[in-house]
Design a protein around this nucleic acid. Structure first.
Length: 479
DNA sequence: TCCAAGTCAATATG
DNA sequence: CATATTGACTTGGA
């Protein structure tokens, strides 16, 4: 029943020429090598079905997705954002009308599009819809109409309620699917919506650093120590892992594309602000601000980081603290092109002992603080619960209460990021060779945080590899 | 069962 | 108001 009722109607018409990206690009190309993006495959595939489908919509979006060529998700979202802002159209309207998604989902999608090759069939759907919408000459007009209609309805509604009675709920319009459903009256069982306190998040992040894939036992411990439901802890790990992965994708994309070329971009400079650190991180105030176009992709201080783990059978040790070390160990063996590229940033590195000293210089604050330790005493890596856990819990010190005051500014790595030098590299060529891109950001980025993220990602990879160790099937890893 | 990917929807922010 | 964040749920795969 979760259907998105309406969606089908509109998309129907514009099925016409499928997606093809007009957006050539930004590119700049230094070495003029035009090759690239065009999709090679086109060649044969005889049937490939009639993309150009004729009027009728027989093709469902899913079918279109199936035959769609690779799309530049970043470029698409960029253009969609421009069009929407230029015409004062909101994401809610756009999402509900064109994509069949809620505002929050649209926001997320537009701000952090995953690269095409990393999307599942389902995940590509919204992008195909967006491309279709962009290709539709009347796209803006249609949305504007919708907007007007909505407003009208709103006004009407308001009117009646004010001067009349009839507080009738807007209820979902029309759509039939009624489904009995519960009127949902008075059960105030609304479920409050858990909101994790900053300290709790910090604790979970620390736990993640040590073990991205905690065992059920560890999860239980965490839940107990933090006084959270087990399911909350589980969900948190799922969400965190998944969101970290996403951050990495974003950086790949951004680093890869984007170059300056002022060109006509709309004024909106905003979109690129990438992710800022999450809450508490503290220090860092430093910023690499740099040139306007510099494109700072830095999200500073993010705490996403690695963990050296080895889960499974053994044990690993790790426990590094604030500092964070990148597990270099993995290097080794073989690498395919992409793999190599991926690692590159980690290893090249040079700066091994990069400072971890707070990059002060910043203004006020001066949180010098003493330092936080964050070693987690227990964490025996493996099982055994060690009842001792009680002692220093994950929450630094305190017992497991949700008190608020604490607040220590957690370590957090100083950003120290250096702006990426300009350099518009052209990693694309490689990218196009393989379906996946990976290279991108590595380039001259020595950015510390980036490294951390990469490390985190590697750990995920490692985890998967180990897990899959049993079967072999060489190729196919896609990092 | 676990996990990842997509989303939703409540809440935060601006 | 609009947009951003995020815990939880849903799907689909092993």
């Amino acid at each position: 029943a979760p259907e998105s009722p309406m969606s089908s109607s509109e998309s129907v018409k514009s099925l016409t020429e499928l997606v093809q990206q007009p957006c050539p690009a930004i590119e700049t190309s230094k070495d003029g090598k035009p090759q690239e993006s065009s999709e090679p495959p086109v060649s044969e595939s005889q049937s490939t079905t009639p993309l150009p489908l004729s009027g009728h919509s027989a093709l469902s979006i899913q079918e279109l997705v199936a035959v769609s060529p690779e799309l530049d998700t970043y470029g698409i979202t960029k253009r969609v954002k421009e069009v929407l802002t230029d015409n004062n159209l909101g994401q809610r309207l756009f999402g509900e009308t064109i994509l069949g998604l809620t505002q929050g989902s649209v926001s997320d999608l537009l701000a952090r599009p995953k690269p095409w090759h990393k999307l599942s069939l389902k995940g590509r759907e919204p992008f195909v819809r967006m491309q279709l919408w962009l290709n539709d000459p009347n796209n803006v007009e249609k949305l504007m109409d919708m907007k007007r209609m909505e407003k009208k309805a709103y006004m009407k509604r308001r009117h009646s309620s004010v001067s009349d009675s009839q507080p009738c709920e807007p209820s979902s319009v029309g759509i039939d699917y009624s489904q009995g459903a519960s009127p949902q009256p008075q059960h105030q069982l609304k479920k409050p919506r858990v909101v994790l306190a900053p300290e709790e998040k910090e604790a979970l992040k620390r736990a993640y650093q040590q073990k991205p894939y905690p065992s059920p036992k560890t999860i239980e411990e965490l839940a107990t120590q933090l006084n959270l439901k087990t399911s909350t802890v589980i969900n948190w790990f799922h969400n965190y892992r998944s969101r970290i992965r996403r951050e990495l994708f974003i950086e790949e994309i951004q680093a890869g594309s984007q170059s300056q070329a002022g060109s006509s971009d709309s004024p909106s400079a905003r979109s690129s602000r990438a992710v800022h650190s999450s809450e508490g991180d503290s220090c860092d105030g430093v910023d690499t601000e740099g040139l306007p176009e510099g494109k700072q992709s830095g999200l500073e201080a993010d705490e996403y980081s690695n963990a050296t783990t080895k889960s499974q059978g053994g044990q690993a040790e790790s426990a590094f603290e604030a500092g964070e070390e990148v597990p270099q160990d993995v290097r080794s063996s073989e690498k395919t092109e992409s793999f190599h590229l991926g690692m590159e940033s980690l290893e090249d590195t040079d700066d091994e002992g990069r400072l971890k000293a707070p990059r002060q210089s910043s203004p006020p604050g001066s949180q010098s603080s003493g330092e936080t330790l964050e070693t987690m005493p227990n964490s025996a890596t493996e099982e055994d619960a060690s009842t001792s856990a009680a002692s220093t819990s994950v929450l630094t010190g305190e017992s497991s209460f949700k008190s608020k005051e604490s607040s220590e500014k957690m370590l957090s790595v100083p950003s120290t990021s250096s702006t990426l030098a300009a350099g518009s590299q052209k990693a694309n060529s490689i990218q196009s060779l393989f379906s996946f891109s990976e290279a991108a950001s590595s380039k001259n980025t020595r950015d510390n945080t980036l490294r951390k993220k990469k490390a985190a990602n590697l750990n995920n990879i490692i985890h998967r590899l180990e897990k899959a160790a049993s079967r072999e099937e060489p190729v196919e890893w896609e990092f």
